[in-house]
Design a protein around this nucleic acid. Structure first.
Lengths: 224, 224
DNA sequence: CGCATCCAATACGCTTGTGTATCGAAGTTG
DNA sequence: CAACTTCGATACACAAGCGTATTGGATGCG
């Protein structure tokens, strides 16, 4: 039945990315399979969109067959929901990690801006995935609730961070913090998108770095 | 790529656009059929995405069958290309029309902001369509060129408009005009998206109206 | 050592969707 | 009014994709 010599599937380590396969793993846990399928789904959905991607290709990319898939997820939609949950968590974690030390830098704002751009979530693939998921929320009211919930936790996590960072620079906001965050996010997204489409994906000189100081200047004033 | 034996897919003058009539018309010209199919495609693609939409549903929505479709477009991809062209033109036209009188108003900036929000291109359906097309450009390098070309004409059209509007308000830009335009566009998009997802689509109080004065203040200075 | 349990692979049915080929009904022209 | 042309409808062939049912093999446990 199995033409191939027993199985190749796993290279473990939840680390990023794909591998050709490698060592045979003696212990294949269910959760590893799930994670690999989710990793693959993130890639494939980013490249082709949720509707454009087939379960088959997700499985192939992960090194499994559809049997493995349906043994782990009820349907394609269920995969999407699981992916949504996971991505939200990952984004929060990575942003947190990247920003954590930044406030103690001499120039916190510059440090923040610099680190953000080295970050995976702003790479082409992650950008496309986020854009795709956002678009799904725009279209489908059922996904609006989870989307808004995710946004809420994002804000709750980063509004204090923003305030604190500004405070250390002796600044305070003169606009609602949520508005400030939304505006900055919009700026970053536009910048990343533009860089991707025009090809210079890693350009150090981009819309966000040019406009960030201007916008921050407009949204703050010297602290009382 | 594909030669259709029985028909030559003509690209015809745009002609009168909107399909007002409901009754079956005795004389339906080819270009009317094309336009209706494109209208339907704009809707269906906005609702379900390009990949998620079927040719069948586009035809149904337009009041035709697939026979009519394949007599007018070679493939689904050809339809997409035609739609891209048309939407770009429509967007430019509508923005131009909406903004044209605005500069002679007492408060040009307020007039501009007000009119933009009454505009179709910022309605839910048009927003979704634009987001979808943008995402396609992010994913597919082949679509990057047309996308960038469209952006260029957009800029060429509106940068002078922006300068002039600011001049009438006795202001001038202190940042690159392209950056200013990109930033404002990002702000509007974020605002529209947020309104759509949170349900209050026509809310007069939104991110853009709150932040527009702040951003404009930051990007300009009193004219020398 | 044999039994039970998981879990992923294989195989299958069925639906949906694309594109082609053909047909027929209107309109047009001599 | 008859032949021709045009264009959309019907019918069909075929591929892709989803989800189910079943099988096989590994692991854990008594």
């Amino acid at each position: 039945m199995n033409a191939m010599p027993t199985s190749r599937v796993v290279s473990e380590s939840p680390g990023p990315v794909e591998s050709g396969d490698t060592a045979d793993a003696p212990k294949r846990s269910r959760s590893v399979t799930r994670e690999r399928l989710l990793d693959a789904a993130a890639q494939v959905f980013a490249e082709q969109g949720v509707a454009g991607a087939s379960v088959e290709e997700v499985c192939e990319r992960a090194g499994y067959t559809r049997g493995a898939f349906y043994s782990n997820f009820a349907t394609k939609d269920a995969l999407l929901v699981a992916l949504l949950d996971r991505e939200e968590g990952l984004l929060l974690d990575r942003l947190s990690a990247a920003l954590d030390g930044a406030l103690s830098q001499p120039d916190p704002l510059a440090a923040v801006a610099g680190r953000l751009f080295d970050l995976q979530p702003f790479g082409a693939s992650k950008y496309a995935l986020r854009a795709e998921l956002t678009l799904l929320a725009v279209r489908d009211p059922d996904l609006a609730a989870p989307y808004l919930a995710a946004r809420r936790s994002f804000r709750e996590r980063f509004v204090p961070f923003l305030r604190e960072g500004l405070a250390q620079a002796q600044l305070e906001l003169i606009v609602p913090a949520d508005d400030a965050l939304d505006t900055l996010e919009a700026l970053f997204d536009a910048s990343v998108r533009s860089s991707i489409i025009s090809g210079d994906a890693n350009a150090r000189d981009n819309l966000a770095t040019r406009m960030l100081p201007v916008l921050l200047g407009a949204m703050t004033r010297p602290r009382a």
